[in-house]
């Protein structure tokens, strides 16, 4: 099996605060991998470090066999794309959906934009009627679909998902999760997904890493987690919390 992303001993420091303290990770091609943790666990920082949005102070990141330096080239962004958490903040307020989707094509000099945009909108279940709308004319779920279409339009092989449904209503969350599963199956994508919700991670991912305070707590398969075969207390706590309130 080929390896898609390897992260080794990754450290990220913001103004003396160590957000990531030497985290390692191996992602196989075509797999869906989850990062679980509470706020401050460094799970989002890990995604951002891979994309280059957060500066890695030490450690190495290898994507599809290529070890990354400080900067990322255009070819990297055609391999790796990201969907952000907040659908209200990740779409430019003054651009139509059409313009948003055109931008990556223009940057990479891809022709036949018309066709690709229509196909991308179809793929995320929005259709032509949404093409010329502004972000404020869309609901949260629709915005997140546009964000997914934007990430897919460059046909990447790896998709990084930063809590893609935590800002959405439960029913909309189900639709977006289904959409993500569908595009993954169709395009044979590799997912690296961050969430604070164990139920979502076990639903979406085959393997996962539990994180706390910038460190890995343990690495599990989804079935180990479902069967409560965990070795760390912290993971057990998370599991208990995810089952809802129990009166003592």
């Amino acid at each position: 099996m080929t390896v898609s992303i390897t992260v080794e001993g990754l450290e990220v420091v913001f103004d003396r605060f160590r957000a990531l303290k030497g985290v390692s990770l191996e992602l196989r091609e075509g797999e869906s991998y989850g990062l679980v943790g509470e706020s401050g666990s460094g799970k989002s920082t890990l995604l951002r470090a891979i994309t280059g949005l957060a500066p890695a102070s030490s450690g190495t990141i290898t994507v599809n066999g290529k070890t990354l330096g400080k900067t990322r080239d255009k070819a990297f962004y055609r391999e790796v794309q990201m969907v952000f958490q907040d659908p209200y903040g990740s779409l430019h307020p003054r651009q139509t959906v059409d313009r948003l989707l055109q931008e990556p094509l223009a940057i990479h000099g891809i022709a036949e934009g018309e066709k690709r945009i229509e196909r991308a909108l179809d793929e995320v279940g929005l259709g032509k009627g949404f093409r010329f709308r502004y972000a404020h004319q869309l609901s949260g779920g629709q915005r997140q679909r546009v964000a997914i279409a934007r990430a897919l339009i460059l046909e990447p092989s790896i998709l990084l998902l930063d809590e893609p449904t935590s800002a959405l209503d439960a029913s909309v969350q189900a639709e977006v999760l289904n959409l993500l599963e569908e595009v993954r199956r169709r395009r044979k994508l590799t997912f690296l997904m961050v969430s604070h919700d164990l139920a979502i991670i076990t639903h979406m991912c085959e393997r996962l890493m539990v994180m706390q305070n910038g460190e890995a707590v343990e690495t599990l398969t989804a079935s180990q987690l479902i069967g409560h075969r965990v070795s760390e207390d912290y993971t057990r706590n998370l599991l208990r919390a995810s089952e809802g309130f129990v009166r003592v």
Binding site: L53, Y77, Q81, M82, F84, S90, H92, E103, I107, R150
Partner: peptide, 8 residues
């Protein structure tokens, strides 16, 4: 950030 991640 999203546009940065497009490689702009």
């Amino acid at each position: 950030k999203a546009v940065q991640l497009m490689g702009a």
